[in-house]
Each structure stands twice: as C-alpha cells, then as structure tokens.
Design a protein around this nucleic acid. Sequence first.
RNA 1: GCGGGAAUGGCGGAAUUGGCAGACGCGCUAGCUUCAGGUGCUAGAGCUCGCAAGGGUGUGCAGGUUCAAGUCCUGUUUCCCGCACCA
Length: 827
Amino acid sequence: MAYSTKTDEKWQKIWEETGLYKFDPANVDKKLYCLEMFSYPSGANLHLGHWYNYALTDSWARLKRMQGFNVFHPQGFDSFGLPAENYAIKTGIHPKDSTYKNIETMEVQLKKMGATYDWDYEVITCDPEYYKWNQWIFLKLYEHGLAYRKKAPVNWCPSCKTVLANEQVIDGSCERCSSEVTKKDLTQWFYKITEYAQELLDCLPKLDWPEKTKKIQQNWIGRSEGAEIVFEGADGDFSFKVFTTRADTLYGVTYVVLAPENELVDRITTDEYKASVEQYRSFSKMQTEIERLSTTREKTGVFTGAYAINPVNGERVPIWIADYVLAGYGTGCVMAVPAHDERDYEFAQKYNLPIRRVIKGEEGIDDTLPFVEDGILIDSAEFSGIGSADSREGIVRKLNKQGRGEMKINFRLRDWLVSRQRYWGTPIPVIHCEHCGAVPVPEKDLPVELPYNVEFKPDGKSPLAKCEEFNNVSCPKCGKPAKRDPDTLDTFVCSSWYYLRYPDNKNSEQAFNTEWIDKLLPVDKYVGGAEHAAMHLLYARFFTKALRDMGYLHFDEPFLSLIHQGTILGPDGNRMSKSKGNTVSPDDYIKENGSDVFRMYLAFGFAYTEGGPWSDDGIKAISRFVGRVERLVAGAAELCSGSDAAAGNSSGDTACKSDTAMGSEEKELNYVRNLAIKGATEDTDRFQFNTSIARIMELVNALYKYESSGLKNKSLYLETVVDMLKLLAPFAPHLTEELWERLGKSYSIFNQSWPKWEKNALVRDEVEIVIQINGKIREKLMLPSGLDKAQTEETVMQDEKVRSLLEGMSVLKVIAVPGRLVNIVVK
RNA sequence: GCGGGAAUGGCGGAAUUGGCAGACGCGCUAGCUUCAGGUGCUAGAGCUCGCAAGGGUGUGCAGGUUCAAGUCCUGUUUCCCGCACCA
C-alpha cells in the first residue's frame, strides 16, 4: 500500500494511543522548549502560513527529540480579539460560540498535520482559567506602579470604534480595517513599558534573534541622548523644559514651540491671541493621523502672545504652538533653531521668524542654511570657536550650575495603552467608585468573568458598559454602589505571557509555579512571523522583566533564539489574497498527497526564512521522491525477509548476513551516507530544510546506484537505508514510521537515536585538485587526499600535464590550498 | 528623508564565510523500458563561438583590493521591509 492519508491516520492514531509525544516532566535536565507563535482561531481551516510555520518547526522539534532532548512542544489559541466580534456583528453568532467551534476545527486540522504537540498543555486565552491570570498580572502591575490610568489623546479608529495602540496604527490607518485614525481624549489604562526601555535595549545584543528584528526593536525604542533645558516665561510666572539633542545651537534659538495639546497653552496665551489659539487647537485635533503625518504637508502654527527667556543669553523669544511638535515625545516643547533644523527653518520662513546662524561648517564644507550637521560655533559668547560636540557638554554644564538644564535621555517608546472599548477580551479588573476612585478587584474575586449576554454592536461606548448585571457592583473598599471598568484588555496582553502558562496550564492556584517555570523557561526556540517584531515580541520581553522584578520568575528574557518563517506567495508571485484569487488551500493537497508530501514540499521548495511563490510542480517532485523512497525500502525489506530479521531478531539495526567488503563502491556509498548525515543534521538544526532534503535525496540516489551495481555489501546497504529513513523522519513522520515498520523494526522510529557521522568516512582516498594558471582553471588532477601544502605543491609541479602547460613560462609564485587547488602565477 | 535586507540559469534555490559558481529539484532535450500513456530508468544541459577538439564569457551595474571575489571595499540602480515632523 503506497503512502497516503491512510498512512497518516494510522500513525496519528497509534501515536495518540501510545502517548508518544507526551512531555516527561521528570526529565527536565534535558528539556528543550520549542514554541511556535500560537494562532488566532479564524473560521477557516489552517492556511498555508500555519503549515509553513508549524509543520517545519515540528520537523526541527523531531530532530531534537531524536537527538535525545526532552522536547516541550505545546500548542494553543490566542482566542480573544476583534475578528470574532466583527464576525458576530455581521452574522449574529456569539463570539464565544464561533471561537470555540473554530478552535475545535483547528485542533482537528493541527492533529492531521501530525505534529509532536502534547495537547495536555494546551492554552486557550479566552478561557476564564487563563484570563483570570491576565487580570491577576494586571493587579500585580498596578501594585507595582506599572499599570496606571491617564487621560491622553489616543488613537481612535472611527470604524472599529475603539482606541488603538501606537503599534496598531499603520501609516495613520487602522491595522484592521484601514480606516483613517483620529485623536480622542480618553482616560485609559497604560502599562509602563517605558520603565524598561533601557533594559529592553541593553539585552538585545545577546539574543540569538534575526539582526533585522533586533534593529526594528532598537528603532522602536528609539533612545536619544540630549539635554533638557528650562525656559522661564518672560511676563508671567511659568517655566517649561524643552528637550534637545542640539544644545550647541542654543544661541541660535529665535522662538520656541509647544505642542497644541500642551497644558501650558491655556495658561500662557494672552487674551489677544485666545481666539486664534483655540481655533488652531481644534483644527489640529480634527486632523487625521494621515494628514498630520504627511511630510510634504506645510507646517502650520499660531503665536500665543507669550514670550520666554532663553536661559543662556536672556533673550526674549516668542512662544508658538504648532502641531509639528508632538505632545507625547520629550516634554512636548521644543526650542526652535531655524538656522540649524530643517523643520524650524521651514516654519520660520513661512511665518517670517528670524533665522540666526550659530554654527559654521568646517573648512570646505557646504554650510548653506539650514545647516544641520555638527560644526564650529559662532556668535555664541564664550562658546564661539568651539566644536559642536564639546559645546553641547559645555553649555549644558553651564546651565546645570544655574539649575536650568541637565543631560537627559529620551525614548521614542511610549507606554502601552491596554484599554479597549470592545467586548471580546479580558475584562479589566477594576471597580470605579465615586468615593474611593479606581479600586482594584481583590484577588480572591478573580476572575472577573466576561458576561455572555451583551449587546456588542459598536457605538463608541464599551459594550460591557451596557450590561447592567456586569456593570453594577459594590465597591470592594466602602461597599457602596460602584461600576466596573467597562473596557477590556488589548489581546496583546494575552500573548505577552502565554509561554509562561503552557508548562503549568492546569495550575488553579497561581498563574504559574515559579520554581517549575524557572526550570522550563526560557523558550529555547521561538518561531513565528516577522510582523510581530515591534509589538508582541517587545511586550513579551517587558512582561518577563516586570514579572522577574516582582519575583515571580528568575530569568531576563523569554525567547533565547528566534526565527521568522518567510511568506509563501501565490503561484503568481503576489501575496495570497482572496480578492486576487491566488490562494492555495492546504486541504486539497493533503487529501490528495498526504501530510508528509505537503510538509516535505514546504521544507524543500523554499529557503525557510525567505518563503516564495507556490508551485504545484514542486509537489509532484516530492510525490515522485516519496515513490522512490518507498520502492527502495520495499526492496530492502525483501532483502531482509530471508534472513535473521524475519526470524524474529528485528530490534537491531543490522539484519542480514552479507559480504562486508569495503571496495570503492562501498566507500562511495558510505561517503554519501555520512555527508548526508552531516548535512541533514547541521542544516535542519539551523532551519535550512531545503538543503537537508537535498542531502537526503543525494543519499537516495546513491542507494539506487549502489543497488544497481550488484549490492555486494548488504549490511552496509541496509544500515544506510536505515540511516536514510531516520534522516527523513523529521520531515515525513508518517511515511518513515510506516516504512520503519515494514523493515521489521520496532516502534517507534522517533525513539531511535539520530545517526552520527564518521569523520573518516568523509575523507575520500583521492581528491580532485584544480590547477589554475594565473587564476584560470587549466587542468584537474586526482591526488591522494591528506597531502599538506608543500606536498600538494610538489606533486602538482612535477605532474607531466602541468609541466607541459607551463612550457615556455617562468613561474613567479605558487599558491597551494590542500585538498582544493593550486594556483600558479606565471609570466 | 533615515535605517535594514536582497539581487545568482528558463524556474525554486545551493555555494566549508575569499578557493572548481549553479548542489538538490522543477522544466527542457535525447535515448531506453513499458508501449495507451501524464509511469519508471539513463544521459545531456549557464550563455556564447565551433562539426568537433577546444576557446571566450558569466552571480543587477561601474570601479577597486587580491595569486584568487557571488563572497571583501567604494560608488550606483532596482525591489522588499522597518521608522518617519521623535526636536
């Protein structure tokens, strides 16, 4: 019977019945935590991206298992979130019902893949048993000052009717529905990720992560060294700080600018300018993110009527407001130096504000204004003639003595806004009491369960606020009537710590047992999409560090080693999408070819981290290869059947009596065998699945060749077939388990040890040495291997053919690379 | 605008990190088997000149370093990704 889905079913059943992939909690010394980013249970079956991520990481996990690791490989569902809710709004089917149904479907699908998951450790984030601990972590963060409430202009998606995190705003549009995002003032919960900005940055270098991803995080955190400088108001009792990286240009300040949202604006605006300031403020609030972010847009702003004093020279400069100054960065105030900043220059030109040069370029440098490079100071009192870098320090030192300035480091990273005005999420465990304010729900009352009967059609109000029995409670502090926080937590909160819950998913007393997860964590290999570089992966790192500082765990980073799978494109080379009609559904292929053919094509057809366009021809090629392997093993099984294998001695790896001669053909087979072992081992380990399979194909080819050449050494042949099956096992688990059985071997191939390669077998008796003359290949010679540099050179230079090639030329130099080439430089 | 990555046959993709470019596979060509084949097997093949032996040329483009460059350096083009008024 040829390989098919029947084979898949047979072994999936046996694996389950025998508990083959159960994690052994007793043997944590050899633990290896292998994790893929868990999936959102969308309506449809597993798509290609899931397969690519999960099936191939599973191949890696299988390699590790055969190498003797006790692999912890859980799976679960990130099951809160907007799609279920949007689907509910469209169809009327409750998010809970659709979600659990989808989970069921996806579990079946995942099982059909034939992965090594231990489902005992499943985590489903919309289960109260899970989100209870989401709430608990909220309380802990709150206790430690890492969760707080503030009124802030937030990103608001008018279509989803919810606020969005900065990370969910893509080019000024909502990540989900692409509507233009506007600003809204709301009181929201934040997690204080900025507290960890420096550490999040500092730990990056030692992580085994793609450099690109580290770079993205580094940019996202955006550390910037500069100074905060105090400006006093000229007429009136106020002062404010500005942040600048260019304190050296302080003498060139001709005005200062506040963000329109800045609280100071109301206080300082003079009566004469009240109207225009108010008008401008409402104008800038109306701007969508897109309009505001447009770099081609002309800068706008208005004068407040107020003046400030430049602390370094006592000059009076006007205070403006303009929305090119961001409220959320630095102090929300900027000193404007139009001569040395492009934005200020543009603004000053438009509004006729003075432009004063205080930096000139070094000899020969074009320093046309705006000149934004470092240079030499001019017209800057005692700092004139000093370089930019030195005077930055000098000026701040001078101000510091007067208490008017200090060095300061700023981060681009903002605190993480976690409140969402949506239904399908973790209720925020806070009660708002008129008398006591925001009161955290006592731990013993967790979980705050998400009620089922809720009107969740979006209208800008949180759905939970409209649910009376949920909403109305008594204050835990004073007992008087109070109201629950009507918002739910961002779903990224769920995924920020699920990897901590997996190992201890049944714990009803704690989110996780510290001692236990200290043993199982950190995750040794984490695999998932690159799109999570700035959000999920940063949040998860923050959670780990925060929980560490609270004493709940004792490691610094959650994911030691990270890999991003590439994207599989449609056959036309475009991103798959329903509207383009270029989607490929795994199901049809699985049904026709079986899981293993599909898995192997995914492994072989692409560079894993690159991805690429889908090709049906590739599937056929693998299907053919599977046929070759089956026929080969069928022949091998027949060879065995007459011998001691059939006599019941089926547990060993050697079976048949035969000639044990090692002639050149045997050596060649053995060479390819060891090359394949080495290649498949090393390449699979580093997620280079395509080349691993290429080596195995070579081995299969070599086996055929040897078989057709007379098959003198049967035991070598059979041992090699056995090794080939083991090498193939991670990629084709069902097929190889079946063929393993057919060879009469004992269950299971996955309990076998991974083959090791012999160094000696990789050394051939003779090697081909390339002879170059002046860098051009002129001749190839077979030389005994193992010659050193001098011997190689000598042998080559004495060779007949080489001598005739060199006739009439004088040799200037000979470069010999043992085992590779000899380059003869001549004239 | 700033930052990062990539570019290799007709195609997917390799190349011990400076040492035979094109592994493995697809597609293609020729042959064999079966012959109804869309099955199986063997061989060929970067491009180009040549009947051939053989020569030339070749990793986006232009330079450079080196005995030797897909790989290192400089400049440049195109594409992808991230950030984007962050002071």
